[in-house]
């Protein structure tokens, strides 16, 4: 099925939400206070909701399987998410910074999908756009609180940005399937999304008193199925039940 472009594109979209949703779900019960814990869990739930839409559609296109077989029954090299979403919850600054870099990309992506020639994707985009807009609002506010908070919070945010910014380039590095989907009017034009992303991030970096590092882009080929060392552990958890008890209904 990975040769089917639309199927592959859906994995690419869905895997990002799956892995980021997973990272956020690790925090449930461990947030800096109750209100923030609840808020981040809402983000995670939104992302898993999107995963379900993408993978239900993918299973339909494949003509076999379910959202769950798509989500849980692949080998690591068949997951197509970017490296940014695999980055661990090192501290709250990393969580917020990762989220912000993603949200600033995700909102224009959803807006673009709303205009997709593919009706299902357009519907997913319309629903996702509202969620992404709220996520971006939330993470932007927190970027400012941390960047313009205490000396420690500023230091932590800058250090998180130094680490994570290198991974943002991969979001915009067009893979073959993204190029094809763009040309067919189904997928998003990453060039246009990058323009909006730059505007959003520059604006928020300024009001957060942080600056992106000049380090070269991380060498990241998640869209081709090559991942960081974190990915194996992430999948060990996500797929635990399927590996321990194969072929059962839960």
């Amino acid at each position: 099925m990975l040769n089917n472009s639309l199927y592959r594109y859906l994995l690419l979209l869905g895997d990002n939400s799956l892995i980021l949703g997973h990272r956020l779900s690790e925090l449930c019960g461990h947030g800096p206070n109750l209100e923030t814990d609840i808020a981040l869990t809402n983000h995670s739930l939104d992302l898993f909701g999107q995963v379900r839409s993408y993978f239900q559609y993918a299973a339909k296109i494949a003509g076999e399987g379910t959202e769950d077989s798509v989500a849980f029954l692949r080998y690591e090299k068949d997951y197509l998410n970017v490296h940014l979403v695999e980055q661990p919850n090192t501290d709250f600054a990393h969580v917020i910074c990762r989220q912000f870099l993603w949200d600033a990309y995700h909102l224009p992506l959803m807006k673009a999908l709303m205009k997709s020639k593919d009706e299902t994707l357009a519907a997913i985009g319309a629903k996702g756009e509202k969620e992404a807009a709220y996520h971006l609002r939330f993470s932007s506010e927190w970027m400012k609180r941390l960047g313009d908070g205490t000396e420690e919070s500023h230091k932590r945010l800058q250090s998180a940005l130094d680490h994570l910014y290198r991974y943002s380039y991969e979001l915009f590095k067009e893979s073959e399937v993204e190029k094809e989907m763009k040309e067919k009017g189904i997928g998003a034009d990453l060039g246009k999304i990058l323009e909006e992303w730059k505007k959003t991030t520059e604006d928020i970096f300024r009001s957060s008193n942080v600056s992106p590092s000049d380090d070269p882009p991380a060498i990241a080929k998640g869209k081709q199925g090559f991942h960081t060392e974190h990915m194996g552990f992430i999948l060990a958890q996500i797929q635990y039940m399927q590996r321990a008890y194969p072929d059962m209904q839960w």
Partner: peptide
């Protein structure tokens, strides 16, 4: 009720806590 450090956060927390 809830806790928040500023009004914007209070609105967002209220949305997340009380309108799920």
């Amino acid at each position: 009720s809830l806790h928040a450090s500023d009004a914007e956060m209070a609105l967002e927390n209220a949305r997340d806590v009380y309108t799920r």
